[in-house]
C-alpha cells in the first residue's frame, strides 16, 4: 500500500527525490552537481524532501566530530544523540519543552533537543555535556556543580550544566537575577536550585581564571 502510494505520487520524483535529499544535505558543496534517481541533473535550488517513514542520510557535527547515519524525518535530535550516538548525557524528561533535561548547545546557544528535529540540526554545531570534557578533565561549569553539590538524583544535571554553559558564553559575569533567568528553562525535581545557582556563580569565576 505504502509503496503503491509513493510510486503514484509523482511529486517526490520530480528532481527532489529521496536520493536528491541525501545528496543535497549530505554532500555540501557537491550538492549542486549531484544526479537524481532518474539520472537527470537536479535543479540547483531544489527543496530537500524526505518521504514519510523513509530513512534518509543526515550528517551531524557533534562535539567537534562529524557523523553520518540514517534517520527518519520525525526523529528528534535527542533520539539520535542518545540512540544512535550513545550520548546519554542529554536526558528525556518531558519531551515537550518543559523541563530542560535534554538541553544541548546548538551553535553555542542552549536549546531543547527534544523539540528539535534531527534534520533541522544539520549543518549546525551541536555540543552535549560529553563535549565539555577535555580528556578526563572537567570543564569549569562541571567542576563548579561538583564542588557545590548542585544535584541530588542528578537527572536534570547535564541539562542544567549545558544551560549554564550557554548562559556564561554570552554573559560571562551574570548577576544572580540573570542566573535565575538564564536557568529558568531547567527544572529540578529534587529542588537543588540554591546549590545550582551558587554553582553557576562559581563557574563564572572559574571560567575567568582560566
Amino acid at each position: 500500500m505504502e509503496k503503491d502510494r509513493k510510486v503514484s505520487n509523482g511529486q517526490g520524483r520530480k528532481g527532489i527525490s529521496r536520493r536528491g535529499f541525501i545528496q543535497l544535505v549530505g554532500a555540501g558543496a557537491l550538492a549542486t552537481t549531484v544526479v537524481g534517481d532518474l539520472g537527470k541533473p537536479l535543479p540547483a535550488a531544489a527543496a530537500e524532501v524526505a518521504e514519510k517513514g523513509e530513512m534518509v542520510h543526515v550528517s551531524l557535527q557533534v562535539n567537534g566530530r562529524r557523523h553520518r547515519f540514517k534517520v527518519e524525518p520525525r526523529w528528534s535530535l535527542l533520539d539520535v544523540l542518545r540512540e544512535k550516538l550513545g550520548l546519554t548525557g542529554p536526558k528525556l524528561g518531558c519531551g515537550r519543552g518543559e523541563c530542560g533535561a535534554c538541553t544541548v548547545l546548538i551553535d553555542g546557544r542552549p536549546r531543547y533537543a527534544c523539540l528539535t528535529l534531527v534534520l533541522e540540526a544539520e549543518g549546525k554545531a551541536i555540543t552535549t555535556i560529553e563535549g565539555l570534557l577535555k580528556g578526563d578533565e572537567l570543564s569549569p561549569v562541571q567542576k563548579a556543580f561538583w564542588d557545590n553539590d548542585a544535584m541530588q538524583c542528578g537527572y536534570c544535571t547535564p541539562g542544567q550544566i549545558m544551560a549554564a554553559e550557554g548562559l556564561l558564553r554570552v554573559n560571562p559575569n551574570p548577576s544572580i537575577e540573570e542566573i535565575r533567568l538564564g536557568m529558568s528553562g531547567n527544572l529540578c525535581r529534587c529542588g537543588s536550585y540554591a546549590h545550582i545557582f551558587k554553582a553557576v556563580e562559581q563557574a563564572a569565576k572559574l571560567r575567568r581564571t582560566i
Partner: peptide, 24 residues
C-alpha cells in the same frame, strides 16, 4: 508519546514553500 510519521521538506524559496503547502 511517539512522534507520528510525516514527510518533511525544506524549501529554498517562498515560491517553493507555497507549492509544498498546497498539498493536503
Amino acid at each position: 508519546m511517539t512522534m507520528p510519521n510525516f514527510s518533511y521538506v525544506r524549501p529554498k524559496s517562498l515560491k517553493e514553500t507555497f507549492s509544498h503547502l498546497s498539498a493536503g
